[in-house]
Design a protein around this nucleic acid. Structure first.
Lengths: 229, 229
DNA sequence: GTCTATATAGGGATAGAC
DNA sequence: GTCTATCCCTATATAGAC
């Protein structure tokens, strides 16, 4: 007598599962080894599937990258909170930055060879620039809100330059820290990303700090003191 | 009767000339196309020599990169002037930064894939970190001099964070600007690098500016107003 | 010093069996 | 969906003639 097949309901198909596994493992390998150093063969090996199977699920390596980038683009859509009172604005900003750094960390392979990656794919390039554009707008809007709340003192030129520097530091901070990293000897797991992220937030806040006034300034200084290593 | 051979004096040998030409053309191609996109074949083609000939002069592509890096390392050794009076300190700093950006520009291929480049060659990595270390020290010393001259107001923590941010912006500014660049359609020559360099100086100075006092602040603001585009 | 010819290796990608 | 086998192409690097 036939065994009733187990209820499959909303379980993903075997195919979908393999597809997801490919994306997940690719992301992990890209982040750890650098995208250029990871071949389709490596990915297949890691998954114990054949290269042919991988190419059944993705036309080519670029398509994998595109999917990962689409994920990244989506998680980066989050916008900062509106400014209410000056003090909590600083906490909001701190948390927002931390979230952004976490997400950049999760897809850090994109930033490792940003120039090459975007140069060889104009679609990625334009999408990345759109993300940057949104962040620039958000930062400038935030400054104007702080200005209106008398929590900041800065000219328009200063705000423009500040926003640009915030973008540069936020974009490249993790890269910059990685330059100092010892070449990883063994299988030592990434040592505590949290430290890099918090340091990134700190550095960005250090850009904003000198333009603050009153409560906001005081509150931020308090926050920053707790993060000096 | 024998023709007297022309005076050869200090003329470089044919061999040395080819060697120099290889370095020069490699640098140009690396900067324009990105090092990873330039093969030994491309370099040989551009010079109208054979690949074999190229490998007579350099054991491999890495050796070419090493020589170019050594050149870069040497030109980056320049240190900023000592602080005399506050006003001229600002001009000195401006000029010094401009020189640094010019030199980074001249070897910008190194920065394009910094992470990959340094990851696959630990010697380059350690030398690059030494350069960064020197710049960090120079920046901190400069701040202390400005502090002593009552031209700056900042805590030690602020100076540390400032120096780090100066390094990040100086290191990645040209890269960051390049992200916005339209994909180069034709043989359009690099459009006016000078603009990028000055903008980089401006952005770095914008980091320092909020910590300045008195003459120095006034003088820098005057300098910066002339550079707002 | 320079060239031609070629060896070698690796990665991306496909065809066709199962 | 998955595997095996294989093709193709490109890049590095070398050998040996001139």
């Amino acid at each position: 007598m036939a065994m009733p097949s187990p209820p499959q309901q909303s379980l993903p198909s075997r195919s979908a599962r393999t597809r997801e596994r490919i994306l997940k493992v690719s992301l992990a390998l890209f982040n750890h080894q650098g995208e250029t150093n990871v071949t389709t063969g490596h990915i297949a090996d890691e998954l114990n599937i054949s290269p042919g199977n991988l190419y059944y699920h993705f036309r080519n390596k670029d398509e994998i990258i595109h999917h990962l980038f689409a994920e990244f683009e989506q998680v980066m859509e989050l916008a900062p909170n509106q400014v209410s009172d000056a003090a909590s604005a600083m906490e909001d900003m701190w948390l927002y930055l931390h979230l952004m750094f976490e997400r950049i960390w999760a897809y850090r392979f994109l930033y490792r060879n940003l120039d090459d990656l975007l140069s060889r794919d104009s679609k990625l390039k334009s999408h990345f620039n759109i993300i940057i554009g949104h962040k620039r707008e958000a930062m400038i809007a935030l400054c104007h809100a702080l200005l209106a709340a008398k929590a900041m003192k800065a000219t328009d030129d200063e705000i423009r330059a500040l926003a640009e520097n915030v973008l540069v530091v936020a974009t490249y901070w993790l890269n910059f820290e990685h330059l100092h990293a010892r070449p990883k000897n063994k299988l030592e797991a990434e040592p505590d990303p949290e430290k890099h992220l918090s340091r990134g937030v700190y550095q960005v806040m250090a850009l904003v700090s000198p333009f603050l006034m009153g409560d906001a300034k005081e509150h931020l200084q308090h926050l920053m003191e707790n993060y000096v290593e």
